[in-house]
């Protein structure tokens, strides 16, 4: 479960998130919608504790922002799969190596991870491209690679920050369907987007943010 209780955060340059109250239950699929600069990314950063709230509390599973120790934050992040508009794939590693990276972080041996990675690449529809470098993949393929990397560690939560921002409408729709498939298997999905037309037809809860404040 993700729970933000009266959470606020201010940047030095002036923008702030104010008194955010939000609960996302386990297994739920929630869209976070709002214009560019409304605070969507900041809210996601609060959830994966890249930043901690100035006031209020953020709770993710058993972790709470007011009591978590710095060295425990990587463990929290291992239960969260992050995908973003910029992919953050490593340009000098092929698809297989990019997808396998989280398993190295967890401590899998090379022999144990091979089948898992192949399976995950197959699940996102990129079979046959294991040896391709990111710049040899299309935007949609890179985003699916990013999703495979997020899913391989079997996370409880997927946080998606404008994952369709660089994709054409068809590819964007395919990605949302892929996320729904993941959600159907029990993973909580929280996806930020400013593309209302893409999400309005999906049957999921929509939370709207504007100027750092949530609207019902």
């Amino acid at each position: 479960m993700i729970k933000l209780e009266n959470a606020s955060y201010s940047f030095k340059k002036g923008f702030s998130l104010s008194n955010i109250d939000l609960t996302i239950d386990d297994g739920e699929f929630v869209f976070l919608i709002g214009p560019t600069g409304s605070g969507k990314t900041t809210m996601l950063r609060l959830i994966y504790m890249n930043i901690l709230p100035d006031s209020g509390v953020v709770r993710v599973g058993k972790y709470s922002s007011n009591s978590i120790k710095k060295r425990k934050i990587p463990q929290l992040r291992r239960s969260i799969g992050m995908i973003s508009q910029d992919y953050h794939l490593l340009a000098d590693r092929n698809l297989f190596e990019n997808v396998a990276l989280p398993l190295h972080v967890i401590g899998y041996s090379k022999s144990d991870m091979g089948d898992l990675v192949i399976e995950m690449i197959e699940e996102v529809g990129l079979t046959g491209k294991e040896n391709h470098l990111p710049d040899e993949l299309s935007g949609g393929e890179q985003q699916r690679a990013c999703l495979a990397r997020a899913l391989i560690k079997d996370p409880d939560i997927i946080l998606a920050d404008e994952p369709t921002g660089n994709l054409d409408p068809v590819t964007a729709f395919d990605l949302v369907k892929l996320l729904e498939k993941v959600n159907a298997e029990g993973t909580t999905v929280f996806m930020a987007s400013h593309n209302y037309s893409l999400i309005k037809s999906r049957n999921h809860r929509i939370v709207e943010i504007h100027g750092g404040k949530l609207r019902s």
């Binding site: 890249n50 929290l76 291992r78 992050m82 989280p102 967890i106």
Partner: peptide
């Protein structure tokens, strides 16, 4: 920087 950012996102510890 990209590598560091990616590693942070997937839950790598500082020493890793």
């Amino acid at each position: 920087k990209d590598l560091i950012q990616a590693l942070k996102m997937i839950g790598a510890t500082n020493s890793f």
